[in-house]
């Protein structure tokens, strides 16, 4: 079991730092390179959601990233102290819609659901916590 934590402000300029944190953990924990993409994607989608929608309360939220891996699974938790909001409550976009009716909103969360094996939301201690887990194939 290995784990790492990083705190960042919910600022679009912090996205490269968030991605770098994930990359370093991957190297340290010697995780399968093919699995870094779904986690980078999930991290960006949720982080950018907080950047764009989390400052409604007048101040820029703090984002806490927790990544944990064991032999069975990898779990990324993105927590933020912005206003309570469950991104999983967003309607699934109609990915069958034609061009004129295509809305891009909600697509990020849709991609996260598709990429991950389990996604859950909780509001704990004043933080939105989104847990995203991908199972590792048995060796």
């Amino acid at each position: 079991m290995s784990q790492a934590t990083q705190e960042l402000s919910a600022d679009a300029g912090q996205l490269p730092a968030a991605t770098a944190f994930l990359g370093e953990f991957w190297e340290t924990a010697d995780l399968p390179p093919a699995l870094v993409f779904p986690f980078e994607l999930a991290l960006e989608e949720i982080f950018m959601n907080v950047v764009m929608h989390g400052s409604g309360g007048g101040q820029v939220p703090t984002v806490r990233l927790i990544i944990a891996a064991d032999t069975d699974s990898i779990t990324l938790t993105v927590a933020d102290n912005g206003p309570a909001f469950d991104p999983l409550s967003l309607a699934t976009p109609d990915i069958e819609a034609d061009l004129e009716h295509r809305r891009i909103g909600g697509l990020g969360v849709h991609l996260v659901r598709e990429m991950m094996d389990a996604v859950s939301y909780a509001r704990e201690g004043g933080f939105n916590q989104l847990r995203m887990t991908k199972n590792l194939a048995p060796a």
């Binding site: 994607l41 950018m48 061009l99 990020g108 991609l111």
Partner: peptide
């Protein structure tokens, strides 16, 4: 391009609409 997110998709969809 080894990485794309929904914001990347947004720029591709925007380009598709503009050229059309």
């Amino acid at each position: 391009i080894d990485y794309i997110s929904s914001l990347g998709l947004r720029s591709l969809l925007g380009a598709f609409k503009k050229f059309k």
